[in-house]
């Protein structure tokens, strides 16, 4: 109980910090939320410094609609390759892995702006007040792959990663790799490492398309 109270106090103290000036935009598309996140995250001095280190930087995305008791998670790994002066990205979202190579920092920023973050299957939101979407991005130096202890624990304890979509049927081609990817996303979002920076927004959802 004491620990829970301390965590709550700590969480409250963290939510008061200002984020970057530009705000994400959220729109409704066929029952899902489409979210665009400003690339100013990449322009933060600390973030840009570690991005240039040549080592992987992991961005952990948490999306929450408290009214619907809904949470979605995703992760993006970015590594600057000094020899080619390119940015290697690996995006893990909704059980899908997408890798891109971007030729410059400007390309990375433009690509970031176009990323179609989706919060699918949002149930009908009841009530008169406007619903909110909470977005948190934690910037973690190094890749998340070294969280092997957490991976081990979770590998044994997680059967159905419900927040990341339905896994393929057991035995189906690609089932294991997809499961590993989903497991990776779950771990990188459920087990926090000490973040270099954290950005938070609360976005009021547009009313006309709420169901």
């Amino acid at each position: 109980m004491i620990l829970a109270a301390l965590l709550l106090v700590g969480e409250l103290s963290e939510t008061s910090r200002p984020a970057v000036r530009a705000s994400p935009q959220a729109t409704w598309e066929e029952g899902s939320l489409r979210v665009r996140i400003p690339s100013q995250v990449l322009l933060d001095v600390e973030v840009r410094r570690v991005l240039q280190s040549g080592l992987t930087v992991t961005f952990l995305f948490d999306f929450a609609v408290p009214r619907a008791r809904l949470e979605r998670h995703a992760s993006l790994q970015v590594r600057y390759e000094p020899w080619d002066e390119t940015y290697l990205t690996s995006l893990l979202s909704q059980g899908q892995k997408r890798e891109e190579t971007l030729s410059s920092f400007d390309s990375l920023a433009k690509w970031w702006e176009t990323l179609p973050w989706t919060v699918p299957n949002v149930p009908p939101l009841e009530g008169n007040s406007r619903a909110e979407l909470k977005i948190t991005i934690s910037v973690v130096p190094f890749s998340a792959t070294e969280e092997r202890d957490a991976r081990h624990w979770f590998a044994q304890s997680i059967e159905e990663p419900r927040d990341l979509g339905s896994p393929p049927a057991a035995g189906a081609p690609g089932a294991q790799s997809t499961r590993d990817d989903m497991l990776g996303a779950l771990i990188t979002t459920a087990i926090k490492r000490r973040a270099l920076r954290t950005f938070r927004w609360i976005v009021t959802l547009p009313e006309q398309e709420r169901r």
Partner: peptide
């Protein structure tokens, strides 16, 4: 066990 469990995706990790 948790400290020495092999990483599940070590093969994907970049080396330098």
């Amino acid at each position: 066990l948790v400290a020495f469990a092999p990483p599940a995706s070590a093969a994907e990790e970049a080396t330098f």
